[in-house]
């Protein structure tokens, strides 16, 4: 929540700097040195603020996962929020990604079971396909046991 509030505050400051520059567009007397200085300073602040905004939302999950096959590295079940948060590695990419998937009770129970017996699985994958809405993709978890016959 703190991240979100500081994000909103920084964005409000950014919007205020742009409003100031908009106002200066229609003020015809910018001959005073202090007014020119203020315009340049506010302009620089307007450019710099978005770079401070970026870390506020970095690391948060994306609710729009692209279709594809991923190696499943970790997950968190949030029943209250109605979501699965998954930590996945896209095939052929070095950097993992963090996605939010819609909650499903049967899948939650299966994930809970896998969490308890994690060491017996050698490969865990997640397949994401296009769903009815952009933030409601279809997905399928696959867990391959080390000893399939057990």
């Amino acid at each position: 929540m703190t991240d979100l509030i500081s994000f909103l505050l920084l964005y409000a400051m950014f919007a205020a700097t742009l409003c100031f520059l908009f106002a200066m567009l229609f003020v015809h007397d910018t001959r005073h040195w202090w007014m020119r200085g203020a315009v340049v300073t506010v302009g620089l602040v307007a450019v710099a603020l978005p770079f401070f905004l970026a870390p506020k939302t970095l690391g948060f999950p994306s609710p729009w996962p692209p279709e594809g096959r991923y190696e499943l590295l970790g997950w968190e079940i949030d029943e209250a929020d109605g979501a699965f948060y998954v930590f996945v590695q896209p095939e052929g990419q070095a950097v993992p990604r963090h996605y939010r998937l819609p909650f499903d009770l049967a899948v939650a129970l299966e994930l809970q079971k896998v969490t308890a017996e994690r060491s017996i699985y050698k490969e865990m994958t997640l397949e994401i396909a296009k769903g009815p809405k952009r933030d409601q993709p279809l997905y399928d978890f696959t867990f391959e046991r080390v000893f399939p016959d057990e």
Partner: peptide, 20 residues
């Protein structure tokens, strides 16, 4: 100016899901 107001929000959406 009108475009600039939206650009930081669009760039935030691009970074969702990436590591911090």
């Amino acid at each position: 100016g009108a475009v600039a107001l939206w650009l930081p929000l669009l760039s935030q959406l691009q970074t969702l899901g990436a590591p911090n």
